Amino acid sequence: MFAENTGGIVALYTRAAPDRQSQYLAWSTDSGLSFTEYAQNPVLDLQLSSFRDPQVFFHAPTQRWIMCVALSRAHQIAFFGSPNLLQWTELSRFGPSGITGVDYECPNLVEVPIEGGKTAWVLFVSINPGAPQGGSATQYFVGTFDGSRFVPESDTVEFVDFAKDFYALQFFTNVPSGNPVSIGWLNNWQYCQETPANSWRGVMSLPRRVSLAPDTTQRLKLIQQPEDLTALRGTASDVTPPSRMEAGSSWETPLPASGAHEVRISAEIDAQPAGLPPGDKGRSGRFVLNFLNSNEETLSIGFDAFTAQLWLDRGKLKGFSHPFFTNSFSAALTPDQRKITLHIVLDKCSVEVFVNNGQQTGSALLFPAPRWTGCA
């Protein structure tokens, strides 16, 4: 494939015919500018019509390449091993498990660091259609992988994102920071072909650095935070919000005239303010951040301390209407939680919200008419 003492790029990919999906191999010796197809393709063919999306990595303990690939309509992820990327032997299968939907797609098996020093294996499986919010979504399973078989620690379904527009994530590994970095398609198959854009369809998410941490029940949960955004930042605005706000009060600040905004907020909410009888929840105990524009459109992100739920509401935007373009989404946080941190990246057509240092993330497409002018 490559001359002695040289290297290059090897691509393993799915080629689809009307009644067959198979895995093919090609290589490049010019940094990906051109590729040569392997003469004896396909390298893996089960003679199936729904067999796609290979992810390949080298497993050092067993000194072989591992491919995980979706048997989409069977709702299984198959694992294969190879010493040379050309001959593949089936090792095991996972599933059906979790929410199956109609198709399994885009599997990724990744060794993810746990806060504190250890690691665990995480299998990411995308489904479409059939996600709880509608359309497409990505679920994940935490478990062990011995080089042949993946075993989840639990059958509980966990989703990568609590909103509706994050799908088919893929991973960069062996990155300088050490943690795997994911990137997803910021869209949903229910309306991706009808969004108001002429020369493009949707965008990719911010790269996310992933890790694992135990929750209050000691189950490992996914932590996602934006990879270093330093190179993308402009001049920071000098915004100093009040250190304390009374229930029912508000505060507004203009946003700079740019296409994208990054907002960081840390707040502690009084769930039982003075003056209310015991047990009377009233209308307090909530924190709401509204992004505004001159067309009276509003993007709302808020937290209710009584229910420990965060919400994202795009229902007051006027740039796109579709039966499946769901208005609002919510995520349950730790019960009795009164403190919340939000890291929000708002772009011209999208928002990504990272809650409590990445314990929850919400990603949504947005189609406001004019640009954002302020937040309150």
Rank of each mutant, 00 (worst) to 15 (best):
W251R: 14
V151F: 03
K118D: 14
E153D: 13
G374C: 09
E227I: 00
Q190N: 14
D347N: 14
V355Y: 00
S321M: 13
S82Q: 02
F291I: 09
F145N: 13
A78M: 01
P176V: 00
S300D: 13
M245I: 13
V10N: 14
L310V: 15
A137N: 15
C375P: 08
V263R: 04
F354Y: 12
G319I: 06
T240F: 02
R209K: 11
D30H: 01
T6D: 12
Q23T: 10
N188G: 13
A236T: 11
A231H: 08
A74V: 08
C349I: 12
F58N: 08
R73L: 05
A78Y: 00
V239F: 03
I265Y: 09
W185S: 12
R264G: 12
G8Q: 06
F324E: 15
V203L: 06
T298A: 03
F367M: 09
P113G: 03
W311A: 13
L206S: 13
S243H: 02
E111L: 08
A274W: 06
N179E: 14
D215C: 00
A305H: 14
R314Q: 02
Q133E: 06
P180S: 13
A236C: 08
P61H: 01
G95W: 04
G130A: 03
D45V: 09
A3P: 01
F303T: 08
I127T: 11
Y140G: 06
S330T: 10
D238H: 10
V142I: 14
A236P: 12
C375Y: 15
S34K: 05
L220V: 09
F325D: 15
L342G: 01
T62H: 05
L333W: 03
E37T: 04
Q190R: 14
P214E: 07
N327Y: 10
G130C: 08
A3E: 11
I77A: 10
S177F: 01
S199V: 00
L33T: 01
P256M: 07
P335M: 08
S97D: 14
F94T: 04
L292V: 00
Q76C: 04
L169H: 07
L48A: 04
S154N: 10
F35I: 00
A39C: 10
G101K: 05
S258A: 08
G259A: 05
L222S: 13
R286P: 08
L222E: 14
S243N: 06
P273I: 05
A131C: 05
W200A: 08
S266K: 13
